[in-house]
């Protein structure tokens, strides 16, 4: 019983995963929902990993769709051209996607994170757009017509059983596990201290540049992995999927779920993935809705707009 209590998160996650796989193969959930559920898991990876940068490190990153795109195209190209035994091919592709995303995060992170100020936000914003441009301009990525015929979970299951959505579920679980444990380790503690007070952190002997890069590149790694998993979920890729709006959707998930709150990110990822799919009228107004949400959450957080808080009305209507 004590074990159950302690490992509640782990056990319930395992149960949900087993049920999902079971339902899927028994055909209880129809394909439409299966697609959405897969997207939910991809968005969980994206939201939780971005939370590491925004919530724990305290830096705004606006280009995670760019890292995701790097991962997606890396994986698409590798699985097309690389000749490896089936059991190795997929894991190698996923890993390389993450690693390439990390390398590009260093190119972006090293010049911007060593400076005081909010350079990371603007650099990542530009970076996301540039990646999109480069992908559109290159031949190997299929240019503006997109990349078609990527090995995917539905059609290639017979030829390569390892390309499988269970891998996606497991990776989502792994992301949550790794990042939540990381934030509780000594490294995570140091990263939070940088968010709270950079000068005091440095004066306490912390090499802040190393830890900033560590947090940011870890976040990029998982975004790259998510991109790879997305490529194999979708089967085709188009560069404009990975635009600024997608980066902002990830930021919304983090902000709505609470900066520094991993469970919140998961909940927000589930909610915000289902919402536009179920409400098609919402889908085209969603950026409008998201932007208002961003502003309101920030203002409420700072308590300077009392009329946005429930307590304000409670006091007034119910008297004290």
């Amino acid at each position: 019983m004590a074990f159950y209590k302690k490992q509640f998160g782990l056990i319930s996650a395992a149960v949900i995963l087993i049920l999902l796989v079971l339902f899927r193969y028994l055909g209880i959930i129809d394909d439409y929902y299966i697609t959405i559920i897969d997207l939910v898991f991809i968005n969980i990876i994206l939201a939780v990993s971005l939370n590491l940068t925004i919530g724990f490190l305290g830096q705004l990153a606006l280009g995670n769709a760019g890292f995701m795109a790097i991962g997606a195209y890396t994986s698409a190209i590798l699985t097309t051209y690389l000749k490896l035994p089936p059991i190795l091919l997929f894991p190698v592709a996923v890993l390389c996607s993450g690693v390439l995303a990390v390398l590009s995060s260093l190119i972006v992170g090293i010049p911007s994170l060593r400076l005081k100020g909010d350079y990371l936000a603007i650099i990542t914003l530009g970076f996301g757009e540039i990646i999109k441009n480069i992908i559109t301009g290159l031949k190997i990525t299929g240019g503006a017509r997109g990349y078609k015929g990527i090995m995917n979970y539905n059609t290639d299951f017979e030829t390569n059983a390892y390309v499988n959505m269970i891998v996606l579920y497991l990776f989502a679980g792994l992301t949550v596990f790794v990042i939540s444990n990381f934030t509780k380790s000594r490294h995570g503690r140091v990263i939070k201290s940088i968010r709270d007070n950079e000068i005091a952190s440095e004066a306490s002997g912390v090499n802040i540049m190393y830890y900033k890069l560590l947090g940011f590149s870890m976040s990029a790694f998982f975004a790259g992995v998510a991109g790879s998993l997305y490529a194999h979920h979708n089967g085709i890729l188009a560069a404009n999927k990975f635009d600024f709006n997608y980066s902002i959707e990830m930021v919304i998930m983090v902000v709505l779920g609470g900066m520094g709150n991993i469970k919140g990110s998961i909940a927000a990822a589930i909610f915000l993935t289902f919402l536009p799919q179920l409400l098609s009228s919402f889908s085209d107004k969603r950026m409008l809705f998201y932007s208002i949400l961003l502003i309101i959450v920030m203002l409420v957080k700072n308590k300077n707009y009392p009329f946005l808080k429930i307590d304000f009305y409670k006091k007034r209507l119910l008297g004290r």
Partner: peptide, 22 residues
Amino acid sequence: PLRGAPRINVLITAIGVSILLQ
């Protein structure tokens, strides 16, 4: 209203205003 708040909050608000206007 966000003067004195963590900078990332103000930055997120600014992004929100930009997307809202668009």
